[in-house]
């Protein structure tokens, strides 16, 4: 059959879980639709930097974009519920929560008024801090100038409470800023630290307790509808199938990134269980007034927390 629709998928990174997902979608959707839906993958921000790609999905110039959940918050504040630390115990637990049918019900309405819909959710890695001065205890964070993975209060306030000076900057600028010690460290994931060779600049990485980088593949709702019932069902089913990359590829990718860090002389420090509990408590206190101001986010967060408890 002749091509009737194009599905452009945009991702900020190259050769990682997102490109693997694109590959699966291309094989699945093109195969089952008999070529009526053509799938084109655009890694490395080829279709534009993240804020624009997100708008692109909202307005339909791009059909699907993949990004850390934080980039959707400016469009749909409710996504912030997924950014609060303390929801998941570990990645496997988090993936179980995200794959749960009840979670999908909660999330399916997110972004509806903005014309977008989460089609695929995953967890890249724990959020870690890479720093010149090793972070072994919460006290080590005090006084450090740290790049945060997002500019919103959810990212800033917990660090501020621990006595750090959080500031937001792009990933491209964080590395040179760390090298010349404009900042003392940066929060992101080990995948990012390994890919960008942060080990050239600093060796210490510490995973923050119960904090994870959740990302989403977001689709344009109107485009999904425009496919017609048959093709829409194919795309949705293939997206659900492609979710298998979370376990099959994502965890292996995380292992690879961890090994890359270690073989290049990098080290991991671990925060003790007692300190971890205290960290989650501090985060709760810091985040409570922020959630109080956003009842919808609080509602989503509470619902997700209940599911997380059930699946522990």
């Amino acid at each position: 059959a002749a091509q009737q629709f194009t599905m452009k998928i945009s991702s900020p990174s190259v050769s990682d879980i997102t490109t693997e997902w694109m590959r699966l979608m291309k094989a699945g959707v093109e195969g089952r639709s008999g070529g009526r839906v053509k799938v084109e993958g655009y890694p490395a921000n080829q279709l534009g930097q993240l804020p624009r790609a997100v708008e692109g999905v909202a307005l339909g110039t791009i059909e699907v974009t993949i990004s850390a959940i934080g980039f959707y918050v400016g469009l749909e504040p409710r996504f912030e519920a997924l950014e609060v630390p303390g929801l998941f115990d570990d990645i496997r637990h988090g993936l179980r929560v995200l794959a749960d049918l009840e979670t999908k019900k909660v999330l399916s309405t997110l972004g509806a008024s903005k014309g977008i819909e989460p089609m695929w959710l995953g967890i890249q890695a724990p959020i870690s801090v890479v720093s010149h001065k090793p972070v072994r205890t919460l006290a080590d964070i005090r006084g450090q100038k740290l790049r945060t993975p997002g500019p919103t209060p959810i990212h800033m306030e917990p660090l501020r409470r621990l006595g750090a000076s959080p500031l937001s900057m792009g990933l491209g600028e964080a590395l040179p800023a760390m090298q010349n010690r404009t900042i003392d460290g940066a929060l992101a994931t080990i995948n990012i630290f390994s890919v960008f060779k942060y080990f050239d600049v600093a060796k210490s990485v510490t995973h923050m307790p119960q904090a994870f980088l959740v990302f989403a593949g977001m689709a344009n709702r109107a485009w999904l509808k425009s496919l017609g019932p048959e093709l829409e069902a194919i795309v949705r089913e293939e997206a659900a199938k492609a979710e298998s990359v979370n376990m099959a590829f994502g965890l292996a990718d995380l292992d690879r990134a961890t090994k890359t860090w270690e073989t290049n002389g990098g080290v991991f420090h671990v925060i003790s269980p007692a300190e971890s509990v205290r960290y989650v408590e501090e985060v709760r206190v810091a985040v409570a007034p922020i959630l109080a101001k956003q009842p919808r986010v609080k509602e989503d967060y509470d619902a997700l927390l209940a599911i997380a408890k059930r699946l522990r």
Binding site: G172, L175, F196, K197, D200
Partner: peptide, 16 residues
């Protein structure tokens, strides 16, 4: 070089 580092996932200090 900053932009290349971003787009090609290469370290900017190395490029410098």
């Amino acid at each position: 070089m900053i932009i290349y580092g971003m787009a090609a996932e290469q370290s900017v200090p190395r490029l410098y």
